[in-house]
C-alpha cells in the first residue's frame, strides 16, 4: 500500500497505520476510503503506513493497536482504532458527526 494523496485540497490529513495486508487492515482501508468519499470529498489526504515495513515509525504516533487511524490535521490529533466498520463512531472520532449535525 502506498500513500495515496487524493486531491490537493488537504484539509484533513489522515494517517492509517497497518501491519501487513491482514483482513482487518484491508477492511479498515476500504471503510476509510468510503467514509472519506462520502463525507470529506476533496478535502482529505490519506497516508497509509505499513509498520512491518517501517517499524521505527511505530513510536512517533504512539501506535499500539492495529489498525489505527490518526487524524493529524486538523488539530487536535485524534486516534481511531479498529477496522472502521462502525461508521458512526468513525465520524465521531473524526469530529465529523457534530459538524454534520450543525450543518443540517
Amino acid at each position: 500500500m502506498q500513500a495515496k494523496p487524493t486531491q490537493s485540497a488537504d484539509q484533513y490529513l489522515l494517517r492509517l497505520y497497518v501491519a501487513g495486508q491482514t483482513p482487518k487492515c484491508m477492511t479498515a482501508f476500504v471503510n476509510l476510503k468510503k467514509i472519506c468519499e462520502e463525507h470529506l470529498a476533496g478535502e482529505y489526504q490519506i497516508e497509509v503506513i505499513d509498520l512491518l515495513e517501517n517499524p521505527t515509525l511505530v513510536r512517533g504516533d504512539q501506535i499500539l493497536a492495529i489498525p489505527t487511524l490518526v487524524r493529524k490535521l486538523p488539530e487536535p490529533v485524534r486516534k481511531i482504532i479498529g477496522d472502521l466498520s462502525n461508521t458512526e463512531r468513525v465520524l465521531i472520532g473524526l469530529d465529523l458527526q457534530r459538524r454534520k449535525v450543525g450543518e443540517s
Binding site: 509498520l51 490529533v77 479498529g82
Partner: peptide, 18 residues
C-alpha cells in the same frame, strides 16, 4: 484521544516491542 470503531489487535505494540 482514542475512538474504537471495530476490531483491532495490538500488533503495533508487538512491532514496537520487537
Amino acid at each position: 484521544e482514542i475512538e474504537e470503531t471495530g476490531e483491532y489487535d495490538l500488533e503495533g505494540l508487538f512491532i514496537r516491542l520487537n
